[in-house]
């Protein structure tokens, strides 16, 4: 009975994130449009797009290999597993111990590895430009994530997300400089990793500015649908991660009653809405930067994360 309940919670969590992900994209698009005083498409438009794409034929380039055809599913599955390991509305999920925060970061790295390979598979110049830039951005963004993980893990004494989240609501946290630095650098790296303005523009199809869109340029039909869903899922994952680490209130504890779960889901949706609003406002007020300004941006994030970690190393042992 206990096992079934835990499985249901874990399964519900996985379903929730995958169902919610297109809505997040839709809400952000709608809000951005309204901020620019445009009407904008309906918030459910991403669902319609996905359904239509899935029913369409796949048009494969002549020399696309098996890797090109399997990569979308691998990328989606890896992102989904990573998202399933982030506590959204409840902590202590059944399989949360199978991978800690370092592994979640590395899982996203696996997804990106295959996405970059898929971008190079057909052998076009745009695919290569996207892969090359994506790997440059990732090479700077992932160390930032590892530094943030170090900072949080040193504070909470664990790299398990559930334990860190439990620590963050406990009174032991206090107000710490390290947490502030980690928060800012997580926001910066989240923007870079989810390909948002000012690092990348999800709406662009101008050659010189594309990063993510250039890699998926050759994809169509169901493959494109799966990739779009994966990138929405990644955005939701980062929002959930920020929510779980820095707004951990309302998370249902393990073995809680149904009421707690209901509160957890409501709190989660509210947090995600707040995140979407903040993201839309931020994206509306800043301009996209040149690709070669990105290293400076991420270098600042890396320094923040590193200083936060260093502060903890130095302050321990007194």
């Amino acid at each position: 009975m206990e096992l079934i309940r835990e499985l249901a919670v874990q399964g519900g969590e996985m379903l929730l994130v995958v169902l919610l992900a297109p809505l997040v994209t839709g809400v952000v698009r709608k809000l951005k449009a309204r901020l620019l005083r445009r009407e904008g498409p309906s918030v459910v438009q991403p669902y319609r797009d996905l359904l239509r794409l899935m029913r369409k034929d796949v048009v494969l380039a002549d020399n696309a290999s098996w890797l090109f055809r399997t990569a979308p599913y691998l990328i989606f599955a890896t992102t989904w597993v990573a998202a399933a390991l982030v506590p959204t509305f409840a902590t202590g999920l059944m399989f949360s111990w199978s991978a800690d925060l370092i592994a979640i970061v590395a899982l996203l790295g696996s997804a990106r590895f295959f996405l970059a390979l898929a971008g190079m598979d057909v052998g076009t110049s745009f695919g290569g430009i996207g892969s090359s830039r994506e790997m440059m951005i990732a090479a700077l963004a992932e160390p930032v994530m590892i530094m943030i993980v170090f900072a949080l893990a040193l504070l909470a004494g664990s790299t398990q997300l559930s334990t860190i989240a439990a620590y963050m609501v406990s009174p032991a946290v206090g107000l710490r400089v390290t947490l502030g630095m980690a928060f800012v650098s997580l926001l910066m790296v989240g923007i870079a990793e989810t390909a948002r303005i000012p690092v990348d523009n999800p709406a662009t199809h101008l050659e010189l500015t594309m990063v993510h869109e250039a890699m998926v340029l050759e994809y169509s039909g169901r493959h494109l649908a799966v990739l779009e869903l994966a990138s929405s899922l990644k955005l939701l994952l980062y929002l959930s991660l920020i929510a779980c680490l820095f707004l951990p209130w309302g998370l249902a504890p393990p073995d809680a009653s149904a009421l707690f779960y209901a509160i957890g889901v409501a709190a989660y949706v509210a947090k995600i809405l707040v995140g979407c609003t903040a993201l839309s406002v931020f994206e509306t007020v800043v301009a996209k930067m040149r690709v070669f300004r990105v290293p400076t941006f991420l270098g600042a994030a890396l320094m923040l994360g590193f200083l936060g970690t260093l502060l903890l190393f130095v302050s321990r042992g007194f």
């Binding site: 989606f76 599955a77 597993v81 399989f95 199978s98 991978a99 592994a103 790299t159 398990q160 334990t163």
Partner: peptide, 23 residues
Amino acid sequence: ASRSSYNGLLVFIFIAMSAGIVA
């Protein structure tokens, strides 16, 4: 266990299952 754990087998099975289900 409360500090850190990693299970390559389960992660692999999860990825294979999710990819299989979606495909």
